[in-house]
Design a protein around this nucleic acid. Structure first.
Lengths: 352, 352
DNA sequence: TTGATTTATTGGAACGTTCCATTTATAGGC
DNA sequence: GCCTATAAATGGAACGTTCCAATAAATCAA
């Protein structure tokens, strides 16, 4: 069917008996061309099996229409949702975002960013890999390509950030636990090379302090942000002389791990030890027991990030406001009933 | 710092006092250039903040180095794993694959494919959206771009397929249930517009027939391939006059839904009703009860698909062999103990 | 009719690279 | 020193578009 060499606008032009310029105009949907000519060209396009060469076009045009999404862990359903939210708004803008996975590896991230830049992306939405150096984006900034960070921020960077209110989320969760009567609290998982970690831990600490929990009654256990990490954290915690009775987990995966470990020890999550997660992934609702967690609306944050990006491209700026998304604690069963029912009414705590 | 207009090889050439051709050679790592010259050029590249323009290069070069991965549902952890497997092998080949999500929407898929083609991809790995028309890839085939299907196939297509042995997987699972003493079996979830559905259902049917289950004792309930679908299927099944006592589910999500629905009715998955999943996603192991499921090694299939693609590109062909990946049943707790322990020994069934 | 105005169409240069055919510099053999 | 062989560097054309300025055709006012 199609000739071996790929067809160009010249082939179309010959086929339709017009000039290459006319074809180009038709391709761009210019209203300057006579309707009959347009349809003649359209037909020729079909006949020769033409595929538009965006690379060639971008050589002349200033702006490309591709946007890169760089995600640190596609396996985490949480990030997949973020991606889905972004795609929703880009789609309606006629843009197809390209997603690339860095697998939490800064070196890989470097490669991915380089490749995306070479491809001539119009903008980059990035959830930076752990351990990203502050200078990793200097190159891109000086090239004038707009970047927004989603979910995570870098220590000393002026790049706009779209993220949930981690501090408040953790505060709410900790307050919930204290409200349930717990007096010895733990924070499970995460590590201090993540800004998010400090934000969440900060909210947790503030709540403890405000609500009169003594510093010696709070236990911080760093660990992997996975089920495995959660298991390890719980083991560590229960090995203490005076173990905590409740834990706020860095994320839901850690919480799932902690619950699993409890079960293995014959303890019932909720009744014997309260656990709260963070992120509220879909599985949280379906776990046994259903996990109380801080909902962050990741798809919504994805949409927001995409909108900010679109605006930046439009106004050809590389600056934008940060956006901190609202969070809310969704209370399920993993914290069990109140510990001291005589003191406070049942059903305290956050929104559903 | 960087000049406003983006730097080109000419800027580098001026800076380094060489010709553009020399710069090009350095960029390509040609050994023809004197080491001192090379480092002089390298320095200039840094100084002017150069970023390579792959679009311009592809204009002359025959082949691009981007590969598109088109996935029907990124939210499904199963596909995320597939993607991760592919990335692993592409990375070592110095290729950055771009992932795009079609959200199971053929129209969206069309857009995505078009965009990827315009970008000049060297190849496409696709898990086609449900309802993809047989002609959807004709355009791409005639353009001579290699395509491989992963996980799913299209009814009448000559495009190579990398997929698990669905028939055998379903056979193993059904045989396991029969071996446990079940005599009234159901197949939950999926719909007949998916080739995979027919493959899995076929294996299920063959096992039933071979092992002497009467046709009137098997129940097929189509439904969404999600938790919600699983819940619906179970409700339908238990509403029957003579309900089944076990179900093979189209995938793990459906199985999780079915188990959830059982619990809601006060029934214990495993003891009261056996359920087997398909795919063996990571959550399967951590569920309560842990889900017996057919493991398909999705990351492995992703790697395989990537290898096939690489080979196709290398040998500039658009044809390749199908590859059917081995499956194995991993037995956990969701089918409970044997129904008729007097007849057969405990611990029958597949590998771990 | 003629010139002015509007509407359609067109040729040419430019975009940033690669690659071939040359030229220029360096080294080797005598 | 001179010729040849090799190594290193270079200029020019080409890749497939866009866009501007220019042309050609059609319409209008007088």
């Amino acid at each position: 069917m199609a000739s071996r060499a790929k067809a160009t606008i010249f082939d179309i032009a010959r086929e339709a008996g017009v000039s290459k310029s006319t074809v180009s105009l038709v391709l761009q949907g210019s209203g300057l061309i006579r309707p009959e000519t347009t349809s003649k060209v359209r037909k020729a396009i079909e006949d020769v099996g033409y595929v538009y060469n965006r690379g060639a076009a971008n050589l002349r045009k200033a702006h490309s229409n591709v946007i890169g999404m760089v995600i640190n862990d596609l396996t985490n359903p949480f990030f997949a949702e973020l991606a889905v939210g972004m795609e929703r708004v880009f789609q309606s803008a006629g843009i197809v975002p390209f997603i690339a996975n860095t697998a939490e590896n800064p070196v890989r991230q470097e490669e991915v960013l380089k490749s995306l830049m070479e491809q001539g992306v119009a903008g980059l939405i990035v959830s930076p890999a752990r351990g990203t150096t502050p200078g990793a984006f200097r190159r891109i900034e000086t090239a004038g390509v707009p970047v927004v960070f989603a979910m995570r921020r870098l220590p000393e960077s002026r790049i706009p950030v779209i993220a949930p209110d981690n501090h408040r989320g953790a505060y709410l969760a900790a307050a919930h636990l204290v409200g349930k009567g717990h007096r010895r609290l733990a924070f499970f998982g995460g590590s201090s090379d993540l800004v998010v970690y400090h934000e969440r831990l900060g909210g947790f600490r503030e709540a403890c302090e405000t609500l009169g929990i003594a510093a010696r009654d709070i236990l911080i256990v760093e660990g992997e942000t996975s089920r495995k990490g959660g298991i390890a954290c719980l083991e560590t915690a229960l090995a203490m002389a005076e173990p905590p009775t409740a834990a706020l987990c860095f994320n839901d995966a850690v919480a799932f791990g902690a619950m699993l470990a409890l079960r293995k020890r014959g303890l019932e999550p909720g009744a014997d030890f309260a656990v709260v997660g963070f992120d509220d992934v879909v599985e949280a609702e379906h776990y046994m027991p259903a996990l109380t967690s801080v909902a962050v609306d990741s798809a919504g944050l994805g949409e927001r990030a995409a909108h900010v990006m679109l605006k930046m491209i439009q106004s050809r700026t590389t600056r934008a406001e940060d956006h901190i998304g609202a969070v809310n604690l969704v209370v399920r069963e993993s914290c069990g009933p109140d510990r001291r029912t005589r003191n406070r009414p049942a059903g305290s705590g956050g929104a559903a």
